[in-house]
Each structure stands twice: as C-alpha cells, then as structure tokens.
Design a protein around this nucleic acid. Structure first.
Ligand SMILES: [Mn+2]
Ligand SMILES: [Mn+2]
Ligand SMILES: [Zn+2]
Ligand SMILES: [Zn+2]
Lengths: 146, 146
DNA sequence: CATCTAATTGAAAAAATTTTTCATTTGGAG
DNA sequence: CTCCAAATGAAAAATTTTTTCAATTAGATG
C-alpha cells in the first residue's frame, strides 16, 4: 500500500478531503527519518505544494495528530517535532558516553522486565524506549592504550 | 538528602547560584506527579516566591534542563510539560498514553537484554534509561466501562 | 462532464508565547 | 561586611500560533 493510500484511508473515514496540501505534508513527515519541526515541515512540503501556507501546516498537523497519523516527539537536541506514528513506534539505541556515537540495536529479552512492571504498577504496557549508555569499542580501545 | 540539596549540588557544580526563584521552581516541579506546563509552573512557584517573573521561569527551565534536572514530557492535553528527572536518577518510568501520568518503577531483569546488546555492538554498557508507555489502571477501568 | 456544496485554503489580523534588553537586586566568595 | 558576577523583573521586541474571512477546491451527485 502506498503512503498516500494510508493517508486517504484515515481521512475518508473522517469525511476529510485528500488535498494537495495534506498530501505534501504527509509525504514530508512519513518519509523523514527524524522528528521534523513545524518550519522544517513547511519548507519541505512547500517544494511539493508551492502555494502552501503556514496556517495550513498548523491546521493539517492538528488534523493528522487527531487522526493518529502523526505524533509529537522529542528530537535529539531536546526540541519537539512531528513523526509518523509508524516510525514513532519504538526507539532502541546505545550511546557512547565519550564520543556520543549512537548505535541502534534490536531489543530482545525485555518480556520479564515489562511483566514485572505491569504487576507492580497495574499498567498495561504497549511500547517502550530503551536508551543504553556506555563506552563504544573504539573509545574503549583508546582508553586502554593510555 | 533533601530536594533542595539535589538542586544545590547540580547548580554549584556549574557555578550557578541557588536563588529563591530556582528553589521555588525546583520544588514545584520536583513535587509534582505530572508534567507541568510553563503557566502551571509559574502559578505554583509564585506562591513560594511572589516576586517571581515569567521571564525567570523561562530562564530557569532552560538552566535546569541543561543541567539534567528536568525533562520535557507530554501533558494530558497533548502539549508539553516539565518533570523532574533527578529524583528519578535511574530514569525508569512508565507513562500512561491517555492521562499522561508518570510512575517510577524499580528496574529488574535487564541483565540479559544488556548482555545481548554488549555482545552485538561491542559497547560496554554502564547505565540505561527505560521509558515504558501504556495504559494506567484508572484509564483502563474507564475504557472498559464504555 | 457540468453543477453544486461543504470542506479547505491563503492572507491578513489578532492573540499568545518566548526572547532580548537593561537597570536593579542578590547570592555567596573572600 | 564588602564586593562583583550572576540573576532578576519589567518593558519591549520578536516569534509563534490562532482566528477571521473571502476565495478556491475536492469530490459527490446527476
Ligand atoms: Mn534510536
Ligand atoms: Mn522517571
Ligand atoms: Zn565512543
Ligand atoms: Zn491513565
């Protein structure tokens, strides 16, 4: 299924129209690997839809957020940005505390931890972010050479 | 250790002063169970420090965020708010995706997951943040009643 | 395809939020 | 206590977000 079909499906369910502006904004967000700020979304989407106004960006983001198509997330630098809900799903990375390099990993074996938290807190856990911090192989090597 | 000592420790390390305004804002955030918006922080902190100006709230939040004392989270209404990150030194929390309530938990059983990442990535892991997202008991109850 | 209509749009204005500037005050070192 | 860099509040400026409104458009209907 094309990305635009995902958009159309959600919009038509809510009696909303599939417009040029919405297509452009959706393509922008759905094709990005990182959360995008509102000015970033405006700039990129405008290339696909030159008449696009900033007001429409605000309105479209509100519509898409309500429709569950996008989510507001924290970016690496601490500010906020929008990502497609699909991409927002989970984040697993390990960062070197010395050189700050970030490496993604596949997360396995969390079941017991999550079940323990569910029992203690009564929450029903749906997803998680796990950030690990440590020393990467190359920094480890350097520190051993000293 | 008192809450104000935690604040003082971080501030003095960075050659920053422990002022009335900072104490009031810190107490406000560190004693709250939910993320607080900027106007909420202003209103509550002003009770402890009546001369407090909004400008100082903005400046203090920037300082505290940089110092790692507080973090931005999503509030109930979808906007963003600040929560204390220091009292929860290990940063293990679960947040309700509906009402945005944050609950800390003791993190157990992560050894296997961490060992697997160490083997795959070559990193030597020292610490971690685990953020879980799900539905809290009271929101679960409400959704079942519908 | 042409017609119709409610939804959507962009521009301008208004409102709200955030940052900058600057004179005054204050924490804390000496 | 004295001193001074850091911090503060008020006002102004800048920026971001929302509202208003007339014009345009998607898409349903015939
Ligand atoms: Mn990641
Ligand atoms: Mn926490
Ligand atoms: Zn490294
Ligand atoms: Zn809840």
């Amino acid at each position: 299924m094309e990305r635009v079909d995902v958009l159309n499906e959600r919009l038509s369910k809510a009696n909303l129209k599939l417009t040029k502006a919405r297509k452009a904004i959706w393509e922008t967000i759905a094709s990005a690997a990182e959360p995008l700020s509102i000015p970033q979304i405006m700039n990129r989407a405008k290339k696909m839809c030159p008449s696009l106004g900033l007001v429409t960006v605000y309105r479209t983001l509100a519509v898409m957020e309500k429709a569950g198509l996008i989510k507001l997330f924290q970016t690496k630098d601490g500010s906020m940005g929008y990502v497609s809900s699909v991409l927002a799903a989970e984040s697993h990375h390990v960062q070197c505390i010395i050189c700050k390099k970030v490496v993604e990993f596949e997360c396995t074996g969390m079941e017991d931890t999550i079940r323990a938290v569910e029992e203690k807190t009564g929450f029903c856990i749906e997803r998680h972010n796990l950030e690990l911090f440590g020393i990467c192989p190359s920094c480890m090597k350097k520190s051993l050479q000293k």
